[in-house]
Design a protein around this nucleic acid. Sequence first.
DNA 1: GATGACCTGTGA
DNA 2: TCACAGGTCATC
Length: 262
Amino acid sequence: MPEILEAETARRLIEAAALGREIRAVRAPDRWYLKDGLTPAALGRVLLGRRLVAARRRGKLLCCDTDGGGPTLGLHLGMSGRVVIDGVAAGDPLRYAANGDRPAWVRFELRFADGGSLGLRDPRRLGSVRLDPDEGRLGIDAFALRLADLRSVLAGRRAPLKAVLMDQTAVAGLGNLLVDEVCFRAGIDPARPAAALDADEQRRLARAVRTTLAVLGRRGGSHTGDHTDARTPGGRCPRDGAEMVRRRVGGRTTWSCPRHQR
DNA sequence: GATGACCTGTGA
DNA sequence: TCACAGGTCATC
């Protein structure tokens, strides 16, 4: 996804519409989509007859707990995944992904006894399904990130700031668009070595994470940032009018303003 | 820590 | 036909 905002939208949808419904069938037509050696048969064995009782999220990972001592179902949306419940998809359409609804794009589906379903629609197949996913290897959730956490995350890291913020074992949930927006708002060059930020920059960055998640969450997703429309050749910084620069930072396409991001 | 691989769809 | 896409993993 889908980044943390879309994952949270999906989590809320599951929480509002899928909890408590008895699972009657599991459809997993795409074996490649099941990780850790998981098979459709094994999924059926542990999920049939159970109900989801909680929908949690750590970073971009969705964790659905089941009743009766059942496993936690881990769903990851990859680059193009969306949760679909009873035919309704969570959140706004994705900006850089196909948004159709071809049945073949449903890589995984729980069918409920009441006739409805919870599916994962993912054209690019980069998402995943696992049981009892390792939540511990993920860093602090971006929604919970405080200044002190950020300081320890950045300490000693010579990698570009952007690479560290996108490192899911450091901070869980931030992806390419959100990190660019955070750096844009904080006025910091994403290519700077992470540990080189001074105290004031760390404060601005921590604040920018909070406001970015709050504002873009309200607006409807990761693609609604102040800088998003400027991610195009010849795009101008909406803050000061400078021409935006496109680079590769931390292995990802990165847009930043050469004037106010330093 | 940087790079390429994974997979498929879209638009230039 | 090609470049590119909001993610992650293995590999050097």
